[in-house]
């Protein structure tokens, strides 16, 4: 299932899930906003753009202004970059860590597996959001500390998933055949096992980006965001006190989070249907 034919197959299966198509469209839109937004809306989102407390649906400020007269649309456009950046980088870090630990545990088994899994369980027991708060608070809020904190609380499920895949694939006969042929561990891990474990990792990763964005927004809502970066969570957090008089300041950034996370989840489900055809709901 590789090459052009495999890609076409994959797209055929992905396309069957309508939600996944919508999700992909929204995600592309958000990605485009993150990439091009600052070019289309040049300027500093922190600058006062007009009078404070301007209501939305105004030609100059379609989504209104906030308590300090900052343009909310501009904030959302610039915030897209932060959310996606943190979401993707933290996920990449968490997945990398999870894949390394999980594959070592699953491939070597025995005592190594035991130790690594106790370690993983330990991190899975710690209440993750509280831990993330503690980490960001103690190491002072910055893009780096937020990414690190999210990655540290997110990797255990990936490690368990990858370990499970390795444990089953390791006993598969084609892997045993490779051992009997005299192949090295490196070949077996990277050529025989890992390519067969990639699908569930991709699906888990795409769903994890969504979770990472939710965690980031909660952190910045609590005032633990990077103080130099405009983010959606921060916008809602700072507008919270004026909710009764200025609903739009909290409403629109929240909608941005909702749509982005929803799109990522839909894409994740679509990937799952397309990559693990046996598990699709259609067969039921």
């Amino acid at each position: 299932m590789t090459g052009m034919e495999g890609l076409r197959d994959f797209w055929q299966r992905y396309r069957r899930n309508k939600g996944a198509i919508v999700g992909l469209a929204v995600l592309v839109l958000v990605l485009a906003t993150a990439l091009l937004g600052p070019t289309l809306f040049p300027g500093n989102p922190w600058d006062m753009a007009g009078a404070p407390f301007q209501k939305p649906f105004d030609p100059e400020f379609p989504l209104g202004t906030d308590t300090l007269g900052r343009d909310i649309l501009m904030g959302i456009v610039h915030g897209a970059r932060v959310s996606l950046l943190i979401g993707f980088v933290a996920t990449f870090a968490a997945v990398s860590l999870g894949v390394i630990l999980g594959s070592v545990a699953g491939y070597y088994g025995g005592l190594v597996d035991d130790l690594l899994m106790r370690f993983t369980e330990f991190f899975q027991t710690i209440p993750s959001f509280v831990f993330a708060i503690v980490l960001v608070a103690i190491f002072t809020p910055s893009i780096a500390s937020i990414v690190a904190a999210i990655a540290i609380v997110s990797w255990p499920p990936v490690a368990r998933l990858v370990r499970g895949e390795f444990l089953t694939l390791r006993t598969r006969e084609f892997v045993q055949a490779s051992v009997v042929l005299g192949r090295s561990s490196r070949h077996i891990i990277f050529v025989e096992i890992l390519p067969n474990a990639v699908s569930p990792i991709i699906v888990a990763g795409s769903l994890m980006v969504a979770t990472a964005i939710l965690i980031e927004s909660s952190l910045s809502f609590l005032g633990l965001g990077d103080p130099n970066m405009m983010s959606w969570g921060f916008m809602i957090g700072s507008a919270r006190t004026v909710l009764r008089t200025a609903w739009w300041m909290s409403f629109f950034p929240g909608l941005a989070i909702l749509l982005t996370v929803l799109a990522l989840n839909l894409v994740g489900e679509g990937l799952n249907d397309a990559l693990n055809p046996r598990l699709t709901r259609e067969g039921r």
Partner: peptide, 21 residues
């Protein structure tokens, strides 16, 4: 490693014994 080529194995499950990728 030098001896491996001389003794080989044939497996049971034709669906699991070949790497699908």
């Amino acid at each position: 490693r030098a001896l491996r080529p001389k003794i080989q194995m044939i497996f049971q499950d034709p669906y699991a014994s070949l790497n699908p990728r």
